[in-house]
Design a protein around this nucleic acid. Structure first.
Lengths: 232, 232
DNA sequence: TAGGTCATGTAATCAGTTACATGATTTT
DNA sequence: AAAATCATGTAACTGATTACATGACCTA
């Protein structure tokens, strides 16, 4: 269980770094522990909590297929326990943290967080746009507008929530919530700006010292032309 | 291969939505295709390209363990081909896109991108901070300062890159790069602000209509006290 | 000649999703 | 009585990482 120092060939930084021991990374486990720290809850309830509060809060999504087995595992590990099972007709299991669970949560919180991992398909596409789809910007503008719309909806969702919702937000949670909202506003401004820039047909390549784009363009045309000839 | 309309029990939105057909989502596949659209490259070369340019560009990471098998698969599918193999002593395989590959890339670019998926452990932790670790803000301030440092380093990395680097950036790629840099600046400002706020010991809970935090605190103390008694 | 970098590849594993099965309760 | 929602769970799968194996070439 000790950290291991290794030449990390697989990481591609081609240097030496620490391989983390298992157990401290982000996972469903800690989200479950965290949500249960707010209040005892059921698997189903946790899911809706994550859906509702965790949206764009940097939580990602969690499916039932990982919640229920994980809850069982946490009970086995003694981190949570059932508060009461199916008091009414509906067989709902309500879980709460054990003292071991509280300790584990606190310990995890004090561990340094790993850098944010994000994958934004829009950005990925934009980085390849110039070679892959140089002629039609219409499609990209459409992508941007959809993103803009999504973000506007998200913004009002959060604004509504912070104003009207009765559920608890602590001081720290509130600060991060303010951050999230400010960032959505920032993003919206930028998406608007990008749409505007994109609309004024410019088409000046920014940097192409080795004529990489020119060559790519040529290769692309060549490849597609060859295709047409082959089909005859 | 047709879209299927389903009552989506597993998604937890507990509503009806479209299940996407496979093949259009973000994946290593399209990153490989995209990097190869810039210029023919090897598996190893693609990896360093992703490390270097893709850092915080919304690409995520890619490991050799997924690159090499995926390259093989793409050859089988006829989307890429080896340009030349190991001309010198070193057995480097250089791949390039086929016409089918260019078509696939262009098609993928025109598909609407899925919403960004991100998981930021720092935010997750902050949302649970108030219940899990109410007493010591020191640890959180430390997390924030580390994040601040990381972002400052990232900023200078990107600023250096756009100024001095000779590699190609197209118009669109340049715009998204500007966005990324602006967002890092925005984040830095906010992290600074948060550290400042955190330092002036306030400790006023923001919203707690149902005394959820009070109760959580009590449960926590109770659970931890019980633990101590049991150990006797 | 030893250590680093360049370079490709595979087997084991893993965290998580998807899809399915089941059934009670509530709403229309 | 049908449809939607609440609620739990499992089996199959999947995309990816980790860890390992191998070897050439480069430079201090």
């Amino acid at each position: 269980m000790k950290d291991k120092l290794t030449t990390d060939n697989a990481s591609g930084t081609m240097s030496v770094r620490y391989i983390n021991k298992k157990g401290d990374e982000v996972s469903v486990k800690h989200i479950l522990l965290g949500v249960l720290s707010w209040a005892p809850n059921s698997g189903y309830g946790i899911k809706s909590e994550v859906e509702y509060k965790g949206r764009e809060l940097g939580w990602g999504r969690v499916s039932f297929g990982s919640i229920y087995p994980q809850l069982k595992k946490l009970v086995d590990e003694g981190l949570i326990q059932t508060l009461h099972t199916g008091n009414e007709g509906r067989k709902t299991k309500i879980y709460e943290l054990t003292s071991k669970g509280w300790t584990e949560l606190t310990h995890w919180l004090n561990q340094p967080p790993s850098p944010p991992e994000m994958r934004d398909e829009l950005f990925i596409k934009m980085s390849f746009w110039d070679t892959g789809s140089p002629e039609d910007r219409k499609s990209l503008i459409h992508h941007l507008r959809s993103r803009l719309k999504e973000n506007r909806e998200m913004l009002s969702h959060f604004e509504e929530w912070t104003k009207n919702d009765l559920s608890a937000i602590g001081e720290i949670g509130g600060i991060s919530m303010d951050f999230i909202i400010a960032r959505i506003r920032f993003d919206i401004e930028w998406y608007e700006k990008m749409v505007a820039v994109m609309n004024q047909q410019s088409n000046i390549p920014r940097q192409d010292p080795d004529q990489l784009f020119e060559k790519a363009k040529a290769r692309r045309i060549e490849a597609l032309r060859k295709d047409l000839v082959d089909e005859d």
